[in-house]
């Protein structure tokens, strides 16, 4: 614990955990469903943040990976009638294979080229999901993906998602603080500097993309069991871009930020939209305001202000 900041972080963590665990007792089924969705898209956004916020590699095709995992699960469930273990296994495999193929394609690129290649990759999955009618059901999608017995009720599945997302968040937290994560930050700052230190940066990008792809895969599997349905729009650029938007909204390179951004976007989309048809306008305005006045995103800006406030009061651990 380093001074007040550490205590505040611990307090917020404990409080949100307590609310998170108690949630099914506090609110109705609809809101629990919304929070479940926000947790899943939050994990998805965190997988983008690992690449974009730490490695400086902004991906616009992450939804392709998640959707591949979702389709793997849905195909095994709806078309093949396999058990849940096989469904999850094929979902994982599908997500990781797509990640690996994508990773080989991007490992020598960076910057705008990286963005354009990933954009195309995501849209390839979208295109395939429309064309491979026998596997994906084309525009109709694959409905009727049932959850296992012990997760069939909405609150059971909520707790399960909460646990998985917590474990994944902890893993991400450890990863970004590991030597691998530090080298990833080095990659964002300067690839050539890492090269002369003896890092094979192409290989490093491959690994980073695979790790990120793993978490996107997990998010895809969780999502298909929540919606019990998958359709091509899950792979579309819009879905990938929404993940990037959540990340920027909450704060790039903070991990917590993308999760909070996800809660805001899901709230706007699913709750505000009931009373206000033009919720995308609202989201656009919010995005503009954040980019103009809080360029580090909500979490990034808040923590910066907090530190400045502490410094003014002479309480801060001196700025490192």
């Amino acid at each position: 614990m380093k001074g007040p900041t550490g205590w505040v972080k611990l307090g917020l963590l404990v409080a949100s955990l307590a609310v998170g665990v108690a949630l099914p007792y506090l609110v109705d089924q609809f809101l629990v469903g919304i929070v479940t969705l926000a947790l899943i898209t939050g994990l998805f956004a965190m997988s983008i943040d690992l690449l974009a916020g730490y490695g400086g590699l902004v991906t616009l095709g992450q939804a392709g990976i998640s959707a591949a995992a979702s389709y793997g699960v849905a195909y095994m469930s709806v078309k093949a009638g396999a058990g849940h273990l096989a469904q999850v296994g094929v979902g994982l495999l599908a997500g990781l294979i797509v990640s690996a193929v994508f990773a080989v394609m991007i490992m020598r690129s960076s910057g705008v080229y990286f963005m354009m290649i990933t954009l195309a990759q995501g849209m390839i999955i979208w295109g395939l999901s429309i064309r491979l009618t026998r596997i994906t059901g084309a525009e109709n999608g694959l409905p009727g993906v049932d959850r296992p017995e012990f997760l069939s009720l909405y609150w059971q599945y909520y707790w399960f998602v909460l646990a998985v997302v917590l474990i994944c968040s902890a893993m991400l937290y450890v990863i970004v603080r590991s030597p691998f994560g530090l080298a990833l930050e080095g990659l964002r700052e300067s690839e050539s500097r890492l090269l002369v230190l003896g890092y094979n940066t192409s290989l490093q990008k491959f690994y980073a993309f695979m790790v990120s792809g793993f978490f996107a895969t997990v998010a895809g599997i969780l999502l298909v069991y929540l919606n019990q349905f998958i359709s091509p729009s899950s792979a579309h650029l819009t879905a990938s871009a929404l993940g990037v938007l959540q990340t920027i909204l909450g704060g790039v390179g903070t991990l917590v930020g993308p999760m909070i951004g996800s809660f805001i976007v899901v709230y706007l989309r699913n709750v505000v939209s009931q009373d206000f048809e033009r919720w995308p306008t609202l989201m656009g305005l919010l995005f503009i305001v954040v980019v103009l006045f809080a360029r580090r995103g909500l979490v990034g800006e808040l923590s910066e202000r907090w530190r400045a406030w502490l410094t003014r009061r002479g309480l801060a651990v001196p700025l490192r």
Partner: peptide, 8 residues
């Protein structure tokens, strides 16, 4: 050789 190979 690549930079990283020379560094190594």
């Amino acid at each position: 050789l690549e930079s990283h190979q020379i560094a190594r």
